[in-house]
Design a protein around this nucleic acid. Structure first.
Length: 494
RNA sequence: GGUCCUGUGGCCGAGGGGUUAGGCAAGGCUCUGCAAAAGCUUCUACAGCGGUUCAAAUCCGCUCGGGACCUCCA
């Protein structure tokens, strides 16, 4: 039978058999967006990868509670001198309420991400709605002696923590290296002088006068530090320790490392058993950066409205493209790569349509169970979607062969094949056919009429007429395929 | 400066001591009135230099290139 599900755990650096704390329930926390800008290509990878992870867990029979937060407070501007909240900074520029900005970008995030046909979080908590929980947690850390108050701000004492616990267990860093590397690249941030040690991180920041987003606390009017929100919210909704914590590799340090430290102090346990980190995306081999002017927003990708894009790419094309690479590798975007995925996806869905029309024979040339096992083995091996997809294309080949009469399949295997394809493509990978299914029912009879006219012309050897019909249909986005018995068509994009 | 990842054929990307990844592109053939689609088939690989081994794209070392993180980026 199939292998057990193994997950590459960043915490141990190894692939481990997945065993939930409380079978069949699985608690999963994914670090969500900081809502101070429109979602870009990089924002899509986490939701897509974790969508398949969640879908697969559900498919395996687990009951998943999926928590993905919205960070709408607390991010300091790293390129500004004043240490303002990122959201507040935008707010002043545009003279809007900070929450108005947060709301705007939260909605933009939802709008674009939902196009990817991803399962929505069971709970989507906002940092601003959990100030009390964060204050409570900070108080406890102070009480236990691992944080100190300085000028109204509260900092986590990393050195003290490292004496008893292992600060760096997740990212593989050693505290001495952190101290050694501190001088060179250390950025001048506000409040640095308040810290006992440069590696200490803020749990609570006192707000300056003009800082708009602020809350009362035992220490000052201010706002919570970056890492504490996830610790507080994950504990609230998933418990002190839960199964899976995910995010981008860029969050590994310091964000997740600090989450572990905070939770370890408060609850005396690492918050998550399995830490999953997906890799970053690059664009034409280069990293996406504002300075390179190559950042592409999701809305730009979907509309094709960007100077680096030759055309628009659909959300499902993006999803499929992301899944054709393993989540722990960097992924390079380019027009050629996206077009390749688009073509492949189209071939996949074409075969899926044929699947429902295949003729049943007495004997079968294929063993679908073997194929099925290979796909499950791939997914069980740390969610290896590219391998799984390569076997799905093997199935595409099988379907086309049968359709063309080069091979046969019996009733039982065909039923297995249908089941397998539908399960994998729709339930697990969460793909969907973006061809205009709603309008197709109206268009279909019209196209059929044209095809009849064309076949009549062909019968009369009026090829000029028949080709004219074909060419015009192609121009209108309908590709004609002359089969042995009947003529079919598919709707092509662009 | 520190820690770590990575370099695969025209493009993207799996794999990871001996056995076809896959998608896209290109060439040939079959089918076709011609195309398209589909099938069959061919060609371009494991950055460079050493080492370990019966055997290295895979392990080790060095060199060169790309990237991530090192206090607020998904």
């Amino acid at each position: 039978m199939e292998s057990p599900l193994k997950i590459h755990n960043t915490l141990t650096g190894k692939s481990e058999v997945f065993t939930p704390i409380n079978h069949p329930y699985v608690g999963l926390y994914l670090c969500g967006p900081t809502v101070y800008g429109y979602p870009h290509l990089g924002h899509s990878r986490g939701p897509v990868i974790f969508d398949v992870i969640i879908r697969y867990l559900i498919h395996l029979g687990y009951k998943v509670r999926f928590v993905r937060n919205i960070t709408d407070v607390g991010h300091l501007l790293n390129d500004a001198d004043d240490g303002e909240d990122k959201i507040a900074k935008k707010a002043k520029l545009e003279k809007l309420e900070p929450m108005e900005i947060a709301q705007h970008f939260t909605e933009a995030y939802h709008e674009e991400i939902n196009k990817l046909n991803v399962i929505k979080p069971s709970i989507e908590p906002r940092a601003s709605g959990h100030i009390i929980e964060q204050i409570e947690m900070i108080s406890k850390i102070i009480e236990l002696g691992y944080a100190y108050v300085a000028n109204g701000s509260v900092y986590f004492d990393v050195i003290k923590y490292a004496q008893k616990y292992n600060y760096g267990e997740l990212s593989g860093r050693v505290i001495e290296d952190l101290i050694a590397g501190a001088g060179q690249a250390r950025r001048e941030l506000e409040g640095q002088y308040e810290k006992k040690n440069p590696n200490d991180f803020a749990l609570w920041k006192k707000a300056s006068e003009e800082h708009i987003m602020q809350w009362n606390s035992p220490w000052s009017m201010g706002f919570p530090g970056w890492h504490i929100e996830c610790s507080a919210m994950s504990a609230k909704y998933l418990g002190k320790t839960f199964d899976i914590h995910g995010g981008g590799m860029d969050l590994l340090f310091p964000h997740h490392e600090s989450e572990i430290a905070q939770s370890t102090v408060c609850h005396n346990i690492n918050p998550a058993n399995y830490w999953i980190h997906h890799n970053m995306v690059t664009l034409n081999g280069q990293k996406m950066a504002k300075s390179l002017n190559n950042g592409i927003l999701l809305s730009e990708l979907f509309s094709g409205n960007h100077h680096l894009l030759e055309k628009a790419y659909s959300p499902i094309t993006l999803k499929f493209f992301i899944l054709q690479a393993h989540y722990r590798s960097t992924l390079d975007f380019s027009n050629d790569a996206l077009k390749a995925s688009e073509k492949g996806l189209q071939r996949l869905f074409n075969s899926l349509e044929l699947l429902n029309k295949l003729k049943i024979s007495e004997k079968s040339d294929f063993d679908i169970t073997e194929l099925k096992n290979k796909i499950y083995d791939a997914l069980n091996d740390d969610f290896n979607t590219p391998i799984a997809i390569s076997y799905i294309f093997e199935a595409v080949n099988i379907i086309n062969k049968i359709n063309d009469g080069y091979a046969t399949i019996d009733k039982e295997e065909l039923s297995k094949l249908k089941n397998l394809m539908n399960t994998m493509i729709f339930d697990v990978l969460g793909l969907k056919n973006e061809q205009l299914t709603n309008t197709k029912q109206y268009i279909d009879p019209l196209i059929k009429i044209l095809l009849e006219l064309r076949n009549e012309a062909k019968k009369n050897k009026d090829y000029k007429k028949s080709d004219e019909i074909r060419d015009k249909l192609l121009k209108a986005g309908f590709e004609i395929k002359d089969g042995k018995d009947e003529t079919t068509y598919s709707i092509i994009k662009e």
